[in-house]
């Protein structure tokens, strides 16, 4: 638990109005979805359009389930800026050998338990990208994966 998780990269410019971090534990199916729900509650405190909250919440939930299914532990950090919200999700885990494959709809290495939970159909990462205005992924096999994604607020 004392091991340091992979760090997010340098901050992009922009005034950060609010930031908060949550820890997600791998394998913890019974609590899968609680972090996405907590982030959603936080976003509701800001004057963010419900459709934007919905899109980011979908991304957060898929990303959270990915950690629970495939990683050991992760920290999800939410940053709220004047014109957008962004998330950095850095996990410690097995990593993704071929990101191109993982981004393809239907590509999956899920176990039957994961599928019984209604996930693991190879839609997670594509779903995150589809719902976000910004998306980046980097991964090192045997070390972990970092996702960066975010939504812009409508003007």
């Amino acid at each position: 638990m004392s091991e340091e998780l992979p760090r997010a990269g340098a901050e992009a410019p922009g005034e950060i109005l609010y930031s908060e971090r949550w820890t997600i534990r791998g394998g913890d199916f019974d609590h899968g979805g609680e972090v996405a729900a907590a982030v959603k509650s936080t976003l509701r405190q800001f004057a963010v359009a419900p459709e934007v909250i919905r899109r980011l919440s979908i991304a957060n939930f898929e990303a959270e389930m990915n950690v629970i299914m495939y990683a050991e532990e992760a920290v999800l950090e939410l940053q709220v800026l004047p014109d957008r919200a962004r998330v950095t999700l850095a996990d410690r885990g097995q990593g993704i050998p071929d990101i191109g494959l993982a981004m393809q709809e239907g590509w999956s290495t899920a176990t039957p338990e994961m599928r019984q939970r209604g996930f693991g159909a190879g839609l997670g990462l594509p779903n995150i990208r589809k719902n976000c205005d910004e998306f980046a992924i980097e991964s090192t096999v045997g070390v972990g994966t970092t996702l960066r994604y975010g939504v812009r607020f409508p003007l």
Partner: peptide, 11 residues
């Protein structure tokens, strides 16, 4: 599963 209720909320 619990995820069905989370999904209904998020979606």
């Amino acid at each position: 599963s619990i995820q069905s209720a989370h999904t209904a909320d998020v979606a």
